[in-house]
Simulated assay, not measured.
Amino acid sequence: MNLVFDPKWDKALPDTDRRKIEQTFQKFVLPNTAGKQITFTPLWQARNHRSDLLVTVLINNYSSQAYSFGNTTLKYVEDNAVKAEKTFTLERVYVPLDSSMPWTFIFPESSFINSSINLHGSLICHNLNDLDPPD
């Protein structure tokens, strides 16, 4: 499993955040996980000045092909309760096979199902078929 960065992230990422991402990748992302395709390893969560929820994760691609997100519905879950849900189309996100890449998914306040968010959750995608191989 390789750790890759979007070129814009690679240029702008502060060293402290890069170290946290690298440490999380080394500690929690397992190589050769059989039966998995795409998983998310939580990095951090925050709220911005507009009250949007920012969920930063490592996108782990265990599949045999590269993926991008096209019309993919993700849910933000805390304590087994869905707190936010949004459909993402991210043409710029390209996760090579056998790679992990950090990304921040932004859930606007209008996507909240429950506004009591404590910033200790995770992302789930029930239908991995929504993930599109890039052209």
Rank of each mutant, 00 (worst) to 15 (best):
Glu22Thr: 10
Gln23Glu: 15
Phe25Pro: 09
Lys27Asp: 08
Val29Met: 05
Leu30Gln: 15
Pro31Glu: 11
Pro31Ala: 13
Asn32Asp: 15
Ala34Arg: 14
Ala34Gly: 06
Ala34Asn: 10
Lys36His: 12
Gln37Ala: 14
Thr39Tyr: 01
Thr39Asn: 09
Arg47Met: 14
Arg47Gly: 07
Arg47Phe: 15
Ser51Gly: 09
Leu58Ala: 05
Asn61Cys: 08
Tyr62Arg: 11
Tyr62Ile: 09
Ser64Leu: 15
Gln65Glu: 12
Ala66Thr: 11
Tyr67His: 13
Tyr67Phe: 15
Ser68Ala: 14
Ser68Glu: 13
Ser68Cys: 15
Phe69Arg: 03
Asn71Ser: 15
Asn71Gly: 10
Thr72Glu: 02
Thr73Leu: 06
Lys75Cys: 08
Lys75Ser: 13
Tyr76Asn: 07
Tyr76Gln: 04
Val77Pro: 01
Glu78Thr: 07
Glu78Cys: 04
Asp79Gln: 12
Asp79Leu: 11
Ala81Arg: 14
Ala81Thr: 15
Lys83Pro: 00
Ala84Asn: 03
Ala84Pro: 00
Ala84Met: 01
Glu85Ser: 11
Glu85Phe: 01
Lys86Asp: 04
Lys86Ser: 09
Phe88Gly: 00
Arg92Val: 13
Pro96Trp: 06
Asp98Ala: 12
Ser99Ala: 13
Met101Asp: 06
Trp103Glu: 03
Trp103Phe: 12
Pro108Gln: 08
Ser110Asp: 09
Ser111Cys: 08
Phe112Trp: 06
Ile113Glu: 05
His120Tyr: 09
Gly121Thr: 02
